[in-house]
Computed example of a mutant assay.
Amino acid sequence: MVNVIWACMAIIGIIYAMFNGTMDKVNEAVFESANEAVTLSIGLISVLVFWLGIMKVAEKAGILHALTKLFRPLVTRLFPDIPEDHPAMGYILSNFTANMFGLGNAATPMGIKAMEQMKQLSGSDTASRSMITFLALNTSSLTLIPTTVIAIRMQYNSISPTEIVGTTIIATIISSVCAILIDRFYYYKSVWRK
């Protein structure tokens, strides 16, 4: 549906430009945007590769394992339907750790694996309680270091690209707490109805 909306917007814009006589400006904007997108992508790739390397070093040094141990009690309370030794728990913890370091692209495959494991665990085609909680938390995306945003700010020559870290931490803590509260509210509301 979103693809259809974007296609309609592009077609309407091109038709309007044809009738308005500004097609040359549309062509110029298309090529400038394409050039800027490629430049931005290359800049983001370098930062993401750097942080993925840091994550690999942290994994080899045992830091990720320590973070996993640290967050396991909290995660087991958030997902009481999942046994502690189930593979879904490992994927969930890995996803949360990658998201905390702002590596959404690295967290996505782990999030998909976690959802697959939770689907197998529930044995149903409908979303389980754990799947809904995981989706809510993943959407709120608790982030300590917003690497992608820092990379974009560096790409556009920001004077202080890391100045957003403090506000990002505050905003994502609030969004994550709200996600948990809303998730629990609707869960207990559905239990109460039954």
Rank of each mutant, 00 (worst) to 15 (best):
V2W: 15
V4D: 12
I5T: 08
W6V: 15
A7V: 13
A7P: 00
C8M: 15
A10S: 12
I12C: 09
G13H: 06
G13E: 07
I14S: 03
I14Y: 11
I15P: 01
A17W: 03
M18I: 14
T22V: 15
K25G: 04
N27M: 15
N27P: 00
A29T: 15
V30M: 09
F31E: 11
F31N: 13
S33Y: 11
N35C: 03
V38L: 08
T39P: 02
L40F: 03
I45Y: 13
V49P: 02
W51N: 02
I54W: 11
I54F: 14
I54N: 03
K60T: 06
A61P: 02
G62W: 10
I63C: 05
H65I: 00
H65A: 10
A66K: 12
T68C: 01
K69V: 07
L70D: 03
T76W: 04
T76F: 04
T76I: 13
R77L: 06
L78D: 12
H86S: 01
P87A: 01
M89R: 08
M89Y: 12
G90C: 02
N95I: 00
F96Y: 13
T97H: 10
L103I: 13
L103D: 09
G104K: 06
A106H: 00
P109K: 08
G111T: 12
I112H: 02
I112A: 07
I112W: 01
I112V: 13
A114L: 06
A114H: 10
M115H: 09
Q117L: 00
K119Q: 15
L121D: 06
L121E: 08
S122G: 12
G123R: 07
A127Q: 07
S128P: 06
S128G: 09
R129M: 13
T133F: 13
L135S: 14
A136L: 05
A136H: 08
A136W: 08
N138G: 15
T139L: 04
S140V: 10
S140R: 07
L142H: 01
I145L: 14
P146V: 09
P146T: 10
T147W: 05
T148R: 05
I150D: 11
I150M: 08
I150K: 12
I152G: 09
R153H: 06
R153M: 01
R153T: 06
M154V: 10
Q155A: 02
I159P: 06
P161N: 08
V165H: 03
G166D: 04
I170P: 00
S175K: 09
S175T: 14
S176E: 10
V177N: 05
V177P: 07
V177S: 05
A179F: 12
A179D: 12
L181D: 02
I182C: 03
D183T: 13
R184T: 08
Y187C: 05
Y187V: 11
Y187F: 15
Y188L: 12
Y188E: 13
Y188D: 07
V191P: 00
